Amino acid sequence: MISATQTLQGETRDAIVVGGGLVGAAIAYGLQRQGLSTLMLDEGDIAHRASRGNFGLIWVQSKGLGAPHYQHWTHGSAQAWPGLAEDLSEATGIGVGLHQPGGLHFCFSDAEMAQRDALMGQLRREAGNAGYEYRMLSVAELRDMVPGLGPKVVGASWTPYDGHASPLHLLRALHAAFQRAGGHYRPNARVEAVTAAPHDFSVSLGTAIVRAPRLVLASGLGNADLAPLVGLAAPLRPERGQILVTERTREVLALPTHVVRQTDEGSLLLGDSKEDMGFDTLSQTPTIMRAIAQRAVQTFPWIAELNIVRAWAALRVMSPDGKPIYDESERCPGAFLANCHSGVTLAGAHAHLLAPMIAAGALAPEMSPFSARRFHVQKAA
């Protein structure tokens, strides 16, 4: 393992992963497991740190409407999650808090229920032979599953694939497992320049240079500037979300929902907001925080008895259509791009499905719909 004080001058590895968040760490861990000597470059606290503000859902329902490739990718990641959690626990002793009992999306009117049922039905049709299991649950059924529902809840959709985990424990476990497998981690490593040729990449970190035949850009919003250096495009924008955290309480919520989940420690996380605020994560919007709290109390009135102990804002990494971008460079083969806003949900896919493709030197044909080239086609149309 290379310490923060050792030089990287002249070092050569099998792969370099730029990005130490959930996406980069999962891919780096997967590459190291494939037998590639991998270096993970982590920019440090000057980065936007989207992974540390993640809500923690492993969420399949509602993902990929009109885009079966995205639905299959998300479903495949959810299926890979138990194996990933077990591997990380065995390698590091760190539990990532995985629970996959299914998840609930609540509806507050008969019209919402009908609309939700239609959406879920379309997802099932688009799944084809892969299958897509879901149920629309009445409020009577829900009362047997979750306690203290509010009077305005009329039902919910449920799929067995959904769950949740601790983003912070996951990030720590990925880093620890990566390094224990022989991976090389460089903290506070800001990429100053990239020199690219087919299967030959030199990354400058100021006074240090490292080379590899494979380069993976997984630095979130930072990819917008890095991608063009290797002949790729990363049209990305930040979308701010806010989360409220309650004091700890006894276990009262066995299933995660799209707006409330309970952690292993007992706190409730309340969230699911969307704001166009640029790169601002320091301020918070009181009206948004109030709306988050009101929706949570509307769903579970007993939440009103709990104290809010902290809150934060974080940035999602959003493409123009909200779907992930996975790409490989035609100009510089060996360079890959990975961007998504679902670092927890897709951790299983990144470690167990995407990393083997990168190790083999090419993305599978079924990954082509994720290429950023889709935006050029849309613009031309």
Results as ranks from 00 to 15, higher is better:
S3Q: 08
A4E: 02
T5L: 03
T5M: 02
R13A: 15
I16E: 00
G20V: 09
G20N: 08
G21H: 08
V23P: 03
V23T: 14
I27Y: 01
Y29N: 01
R33H: 06
R33A: 06
R33P: 04
G35A: 10
S37N: 06
D45A: 14
R49P: 11
S51A: 15
R52V: 15
N54M: 11
I58R: 06
P68R: 02
P68G: 03
Y70D: 02
G76Y: 02
S77H: 03
S77F: 00
P82K: 09
G83N: 10
E86Y: 09
E90Y: 04
E90A: 14
T92H: 05
V96T: 13
L98Q: 07
F108W: 07
S109W: 03
S109T: 04
D110H: 10
A114V: 14
R116N: 06
L119E: 13
L119H: 15
L123Y: 04
L123V: 08
E126W: 00
N129W: 13
N129C: 10
G131D: 05
E133Y: 14
M136K: 02
L137Y: 01
E141D: 09
L142D: 03
D144C: 13
D144F: 14
M145H: 00
P147C: 09
L149I: 10
A156T: 04
A156L: 01
T159D: 13
D162E: 09
G163R: 04
S166V: 09
L168Q: 13
L168N: 11
H169P: 02
L171P: 14
A173V: 11
A173C: 13
A177G: 10
Q179L: 03
Q179E: 02
R180P: 00
H184M: 00
R186I: 04
R186K: 12
R186E: 00
V191S: 01
T195N: 12
T195P: 05
P198I: 05
H199R: 11
H199W: 10
D200W: 02
A208I: 03
I209G: 06
V210N: 06
V210P: 08
G220W: 09
L221V: 07
G222V: 08
V230K: 00
V230S: 01
G231I: 12
R237N: 05
L244A: 07
R250A: 12
P256T: 01
H258S: 14
R261W: 07
E265W: 06
E265H: 12
D272Y: 08
G278R: 14
F279C: 08
T281C: 12
T281K: 11
T287G: 14
R290M: 13
T299S: 11
P301I: 06
W302H: 10
L306K: 06
I308N: 02
V309E: 00
V309K: 02
R310W: 01
A313L: 00
A313M: 00
A314V: 08
K323H: 13
R331Q: 14
H341Q: 03
S342G: 05
A351P: 05
L353P: 03
L353M: 13
M357F: 15
A362H: 15
A364D: 03
F370K: 03
S371T: 14
S371E: 07
R374G: 11
Q378F: 11
K379D: 14
